[in-house]
Amino acid sequence: MISNNIKIKTQDLNVYYGEKQALFNVNLDIHSKEVTALIGPSGCGKSTFIRCINRMNDVIDICKIDGSIKIDDKEIIDNNVDVVRLRESIGMVFQKPNPFPKSIYDNISYGPSIHGLADNKSDMDKIVENSLKKAALWEEVKDRLDEPGTGLSGGQQQRLCIARAISVNPEVILMDEPCSALDPIATAKIEELIDELKKSYTIVIVTHSMSQAVRVSQRTGFFHLGKIIEVDTTEKIFKNPGNQMTQDYITGRFG
């Protein structure tokens, strides 16, 4: 199932860390309600790229971005864009699970409370429950919502972070190697979850594992040295890549 609605469109995106250029003229379209995987060797700019989409790179002082990223045809590389609004609609899951050292409940309710999404306690309870259900964590934690989120296992922590991302009703979820710190069983659960989530959200996932890209994504982009080498349907990329470099990478000749 390949959709043709373009959700995110980047044009001539260049990113600099001080003197060093990290991304070179990246042009990439990300389609609505499907999973786009970004693969490539370490340091090729995949993470830099997805951190541009929710402007997380703003946190780094020396980082400079130019070019264009449009979400639903609205430019976001612009000083007038309120990054807070932007991040409300674009959730993010990080490489290492980073739950707040608070209760499971508070971890989820934090986002909705700062955005004023719930008017009362029962609304909030509902949001928490729904988010945890969507993240397939509800059954495991429903009886201990007031226990600290840091007490969960690694896989559960990561699903908690996914639930936290979902809690503010984003349209897009960015995942920066979400399974790299997890064991295979936890990874399988997350991948299952991603498959389920793509029905409602546009997902961009950075991954080191090509098999993971094959399992979860519909579309794959290959990055190398800050440039996007090739982007196409996952099937095409892995079966019949159009570029020799892609071919070399997926067959394990370098990377």
């Binding site: 929710n54 997380m56 946190v59 990054v83 807070v84 609004r85 932007l86 991040r87 409300e88 609609s89 959730g91 993010m92 899951v93 990080f94 290492k96 980073n98 739950p99 707040f100 050292p101 934090y110 986002g111 700062i114 955005h115 972070c161 936290r164 991302a165 809690s167 503010v168």
Partner: peptide, 27 residues
């Protein structure tokens, strides 16, 4: 306080001030 806490808060759309006041400072 590790940067991942700040990132976590920013990623759900907390402003810089909110991420600091709600998460970093209490810790």
């Amino acid at each position: 306080v590790p940067p991942s806490i700040r990132e976590g808060a920013l990623a759900v759309g907390a402003s810089k001030v909110q991420s600091v006041m709600h998460h970093v400072v209490p810790l």
